[in-house]
Every structure is written in structure tokens, then in C-alpha cells.
Design a protein around this nucleic acid. Structure first.
Lengths: 232, 232
DNA sequence: CTATCTTTGTGTAATAATTACACTAAGAGA
DNA sequence: TCTCTTAGTGTAATTATTACACAAAGATAG
């Protein structure tokens, strides 16, 4: 492939995306980080990120890089914030559009891809020091997740399609960092009429088996169009 | 000034900012638009926007362009969303970081600046057709404003430092597109303890004069740090 | 100077939402 | 069959939200 260059009348910042990937496991919120293979921040942990191609949207870029570097595909992402401080990348001026992803950990194989030494889930309360300004991005993503999870049913992206009410409660407790009364939680979440109780129960548990439920996306879509607000 | 050019190994999108400017007057929410002097969209109404200089943050860029094109300075802005669709600008690939601004209309002189034929306030319910994808940006900004105004005291940016409770109520009614009960509104907003009643009343009104109030930013800061949530 | 007009400023009762709280049922394993 | 663990359930007390009407102020017009 022949090398070519691109010339403009004015200097342009490079444009990149970075992605904060949330998972949920063992009652804990986790973050997927990658260990960099190259400078800068070689062998340090960072968010997966990379440069935006001139023929893709930032959304497409975030999804592509997620797959290239971690093996994740078809995940739920939302734009978070655009970071444009002048020295956030030591190489040159890079403006980063950040995203957060909510991933069902069990559903995917994690693979260290291009430019990455390794990929690993970290508990949110035990993160390593991150390269670039990624600590700041993670902080903002957490705040956003906490705010959003209360009035939009996005938490379900972190669980299996079928889940028990206790799993769902633990998820909310982990994200919101509170404890929730079991009876009140069930009353409220079932009262919205958005969970469907399945005929199936947990298996291989050494105690009373819980029913599985699934989130009814179709009904939610209808209701939210007619002004209904999901609110926990 | 000699012309020079900038060369990179990979093609880069141009980076710009666009700003949705909200004002409030005569009980109505308004938007400040500019009429473009040049192609594309010559003589059409658009949001004030322009390209990011390689030595400024997008925040700085939005503030600079606001001043250059409309004369507004020192205004409250917040980042909204980054738009990166491939054909949003007919000239070339432009990624735009959008902002919204809340402006006290009375406090500033509006001046048509660089590249602008004229600048004008439009009622939010009677906007002209906008150039680029700016209609979409305005729609998102409105949604964001509606959501945010309920749990952050940002509405005050649209009013004078001293305002009457009726003015404040009308502001909320305009943004949220509802009507609010006067007594319940006052009970709630005064109950938060964030408004200070001044010794001054309205003047030159042909009816009972209302007391002026001001928002106590200092107390709000303290309270919000200790977990208090403004919520209307 | 009196009557009229407009808007301010105020309280209470009815209803709805949220919180606090404890025991039985199921089922695996010892 | 006993023990252990978690599932699943209702009610009363408290708090928040809603609905609603009239006297007081002050300018203006006659």
C-alpha cells in the first residue's frame, strides 16, 4: 500500500474515540481495560481508544475499536462527552469523543487485539492508575451511569436476557452504591409492568430457586412514546 | 501574513463547534440565530458555529465564536453532543461539538459579527428552517434543557440576578411546557432555602408589587456538596 | 377620593408515594 | 429429617404531592 499524505489550509487536531466499558459480575460493577503495547503509556492500563477514520462516524469508530482491541461486538454504547484539553495526549493535539458501553460479561469472549498486550476486567473500586486523562473519563462515565440508570432502563444491558429480581436489585445497588429494601424494590419494579415472569426457575442453587424474568422492550417502547417515564 | 499548509499521514475531519443559545423574554423561550453571509446556506438561518483552532479547547472555541458572531460574552455554556454524520456539511467532512448557552437577554447587546448578515431572537415555537443539521441540534438541546432544568438550578442563568417568583414560575412553565400551581410552586422552591428575598419590590407596575428574590449560589454549592439534590 | 382592575401572597385537606419492617416457603446438602 | 440459605410476600406510618379560593396592595380612571 503506497504511503500518501493529506494537506489542509489550517492545522487540525486529530480525532479519536475512547470507550468506558461497564460489566457486572458477582454483584460488582466492573470495567474492561487494556494494557497498551506501544508508547505513550506503554504497559499501562487505559480505555480502548483509537483514531477516527475520515469515512466513519464517531459511533462507528467506537464500535470498530471495541471489536479490534477487545473482541466485543454488537454492544450497547452511548456518547458520553468530548474531551479537548490541549495536552491530553503527549504525542500531539488529540480531541477524544468518549463513549460508554454496557456489556453482558457472560455473553462475550474477551480477546486482546491490535496494539494490546492484554485485556482485563477490573472491579470499579479497585482500578489501576490509568494513562492519558482516562481516569477523568471513567469518573464522568460513572456519574452519567448513576444518573441515567434511574430514569432509563439501560441497566438490563448488563444482565442476561433472563435474570432474577435479586440479580437486578444487586445491579442497582452496585451502580447507585446504596442498599435497597427487597420488598419495596420488587413492588416498584413489578408495578411498572415492564418485567415478564418466565416459567423457568434457577437451577443448581442450594436454596429456594428464584423465577427468571425478562425485560419487555416492546411494551416499554410503546409506553415511553405515550409519555410514560421509567423511574426507580 | 504568509499562507501555509498542514500535512498529516491520515485524512482528518475538520472540527467545529455549534451553539444553541437560549434566552427568555415576555414569558417565552427564545433562540438566537444568525443569518449566514456566505455559502453554504447563504442567507439562511443557522446556529452560530465555526472551526476549532488547534490551540484552543472546544469550550474556548464555542465562547470565542459566540462573541465573534453575536457579540455575546461571559455566558453560561455546557457541552451538548458531538455530531459526526458524514454529510452534515456539504463542503467537506466536519465533526461538530455542540453546546448550549443560557443567556440573560437583557444583559447583552446583540451584534451581527463576522460572516453574519444579521442576528435575531426567535420564539422557540416559531423558528425558521435551519441550515445544516441544526434543526436536529436544536431539538436535542431542548430535550436536554427540559431534562436538566428539573434537577439543576441552571434556569436562573436566563433571568436577571433579581427576579420575582412569578417570573421564575413562568420560566419553568415555558421550558417544561406545563402549567404549574402558584402556591405549590412557591412552597417547593422556597422550601429548598436557596432563594433570598430582597428588600426591593417591583416598580412601575399597575398592581401589587412583587418582592424580588435572588438565587443563593453559595449555599447551593455547600448543600450540593453534602448530597443535597435540587429537584423541581 | 372612590371604585375598579390586576397581580401578589398565603393555608389546609385529600390523595398518592415512599419507607420501614419480619416471617413462611422452597429446596439442596449434610 | 434437620439445617442452611435465599425467595417471596403485606401492612401501617410517614412523607410528598396535589387541588383549590380569597384578602391585600397599589396604580389608574372616573
Amino acid at each position: 500500500m503506497s504511503k500518501r499524505t493529506y494537506t489542509y489550509d489550517y492545522a487540525r487536531p486529530a480525532l479519536a474515540t475512547d470507550c468506558v466499558i461497564f460489566g457486572f459480575d458477582e454483584g460488582e460493577l466492573k470495567l474492561l481495560l487494556i494494557e497498551r503495547e506501544k508508547e505513550p503509556f506503554k504497559n499501562m492500563w487505559t480505555l480502548p481508544g483509537g483514531f477516527v477514520d475520515v469515512k466513519e462516524t464517531t459511533n462507528e469508530c467506537a464500535l470498530r475499536i471495541l471489536q479490534e482491541k477487545t473482541g466485543l461486538k454488537n454492544v450497547f454504547i452511548e456518547q458520553l462527552y468530548t474531551f479537548s484539553e490541549l495536552n491530553r495526549d503527549p504525542r500531539e493535539r488529540v480531541v477524544a469523543v468518549s463513549y460508554y458501553a454496557l456489556v453482558n460479561k457472560r455473553q462475550y469472549e474477551i480477546v486482546a487485539g491490535r496494539d494490546t498486550v492484554s485485556v482485563q476486567w477490573f472491579p470499579i473500586n479497585d482500578l489501576p492508575k490509568l494513562g492519558f486523562d482516562h481516569g477523568k473519563i471513567v469518573k464522568l462515565a460513572l456519574e452519567r451511569l448513576k444518573g441515567k440508570v434511574r430514569y432509563q432502563p439501560i441497566g438490563f444491558e448488563l444482565l442476561n436476557k433472563k435474570f432474577t429480581l435479586t440479580q437486578l436489585q444487586h445491579l442497582y445497588e452496585a451502580i447507585l452504591e446504596t442498599s435497597i429494601d427487597k420488598r419495596n424494590f420488587r413492588k416498584k419494579i413489578l408495578g411498572m409492568g415492564l418485567l415478564e415472569q418466565l416459567d423457568e426457575k434457577e437451577q443448581n442453587v442450594a436454596h429456594k430457586a428464584a423465577y427468571y424474568y425478562s425485560f419487555d422492550h416492546k411494551t416499554y417502547k410503546q409506553l415511553s412514546q405515550s409519555g410514560f417515564l421509567f423511574e426507580l
